[in-house]
């Protein structure tokens, strides 16, 4: 039994405007019983890190379809980790080639979800991982 809802922050770093995935995931996780904060788009890693702390997020979900993920995801995670010791779960989505996944994992991304991922796969992953981290 979970005493408290899992808090998920979803944000789009950088200039990419493709927000269908981020919004659908936000809705899906909310329907799966999580507390979801959708921060919006065109955000700097600094703004997202700040919000992650303020919102006391258990999970940070980053979405980027413009190809800037290798710059933006690691930078966001680094900034969050500088601000808190909390064991936050980081997930990423977008157009992310296989060759980049290992580099993102090294930088602290726990899992990436590409186009075509069923929503229950994402919520199950979060419950399994963040549930145990809480």
């Amino acid at each position: 039994m979970q005493s408290k809802k899992i808090r998920v922050l979803i944000a789009k770093p950088g200039l990419d405007g493709h927000d269908r995935g981020a919004k659908v995931v936000a809705q899906g996780l909310r329907d799966a019983g999580m507390e979801v904060i959708y921060l919006g788009l065109r955000l700097t890693p600094e703004q997202i890190a700040e919000a992650a702390i303020q919102e006391d997020a258990d999970v940070v979900g980053l979405s980027c379809l413009s190809g800037a993920h290798l710059t933006l995801f690691p930078r966001t995670i680094k900034l969050v980790k500088e601000k808190t010791d909390k064991d936050i779960l980081f997930i990423g989505g977008g157009i992310i080639p296989e060759r980049d996944v290992a580099r993102l994992k090294e930088a602290g991304v726990d899992q990436t979800f590409g186009p075509g991922t069923p929503l229950p796969e994402i919520s199950k992953f979060i419950v399994a991982k963040a549930g145990s981290k809480k």
């Binding site: 950088g14 200039l15 065109r42 700097t44 413009s66 190809g67 800037a68 993920h69 710059t71 933006l72």
Partner: peptide, 16 residues
């Protein structure tokens, strides 16, 4: 409306 050296352009230059 940002030049390539703007902080928000970081990681995006020449990408899509």
């Amino acid at each position: 409306g940002y030049d390539s050296d703007h902080p928000l352009a970081r990681g995006e230059v020449g990408k899509c």
